[in-house]
């Protein structure tokens, strides 16, 4: 089975977010990056488990510049066999989806894995776009997946319950919490990763269809106010007059 896992780079969760260029760009100054946790902990690890039980190969793909090689190496250290980096400085979700679809077509994979979203832009778009471009079914927010032959049984979380989907390969899937458990790379994996192939390929030209106009931070949280438990009238007055929630 040939498995493709799409991984992206996101700022560390403790990053203090700010913007530059008149609020049109994310300020990368001093930011520490990690592999998007949904890609790393769930998508990649589940793909590796499938390979370990049924054989095959796991390829990871990233669209980005050489700065991203560190997270790609981490993916290889965790256990992927090889990697593709489409050399591009980034772009819209559509741009990235086009690049991935191009490579996925060329490699004719049985499954293409995504994280359910990246923890920075939370777009959740690329998996769906790629499945459309590849003309494959897309199963999003997978929390459990079992394979029998070429058929996968996938549980996905839906509002207030679960949906169980059956799908034959090839398909595209996005991984949510529960699909697998984080694996910490070990020293041997890190050493092996140095010798695994990381193929850098040029990007294909794409007509951008959307662009970001501006970003804004959520309003700063105001101070916490303590009200004496005996003083319900004051609490009601504050909720009514200031917070305007009752």
């Amino acid at each position: 089975m040939k498995l493709l896992v799409c991984v992206s780079k996101t700022p560390d969760t403790t990053t203090k977010v700010s913007f530059t260029d008149g609020d049109t760009a994310f300020d990368t100054q001093g930011v520490q990056y990690i592999m998007n946790p949904y890609d790393e902990w769930y998508a990649l690890v589940r793909a590796l488990e499938l390979k370990e039980s049924a054989g095959g190969t796991v390829t990871i793909i990233n669209v980005g510049t050489a700065d991203n090689d560190a997270i790609i190496r981490k993916g290889l250290a965790i256990g992927a066999d090889d990697a593709i980096r489409v050399d591009a400085a980034g772009g819209s979700a559509y741009f990235v989806a086009k690049q991935i679809a191009e490579q996925a077509k060329a490699g004719s994979y049985d499954m293409v894995f995504f994280g359910k979203e990246t923890i920075d832009y939370n777009g959740s778009q690329i998996g769906a776009m790629v499945s459309e471009m590849l003309d494959m079914p897309f199963i999003s927010y997978a929390t459990k997946m079992d394979m029998a032959g070429n058929t996968a049984t996938i549980a996905r979380d839906i509002e207030g319950g679960q949906e169980i989907v059956e799908v034959d390969t090839p398909f595209v899937l996005s991984a949510a919490k529960g699909l697998a458990e984080q694996r910490i790379p070990n020293m041997r994996g890190i050493m092996q990763a140095k010798r695994k192939p990381l193929n850098v390929v040029p990007a294909v030209a794409v007509d951008e269809k959307a662009s970001i106009v501006s970003y804004a931070l959520p309003p700063a949280k105001s101070d916490c106010r303590y009200v004496d438990a005996e003083n319900m009238d004051e609490l009601v007055a504050l909720l009514h007059g200031e917070a305007k929630v009752i």
Partner: peptide, 26 residues
């Protein structure tokens, strides 16, 4: 969180950072 006031990380290789972060996670 790690502290790197003098950007010593820039003196390290990718492999070193992977090693450090892996053990830190563990």
């Amino acid at each position: 969180r790690g502290h790197d006031y003098y950007n010593v990380d820039d003196l390290l290789e990718t492999e070193h950072i992977l090693v450090r972060d892996a053990v830190r996670d563990w």
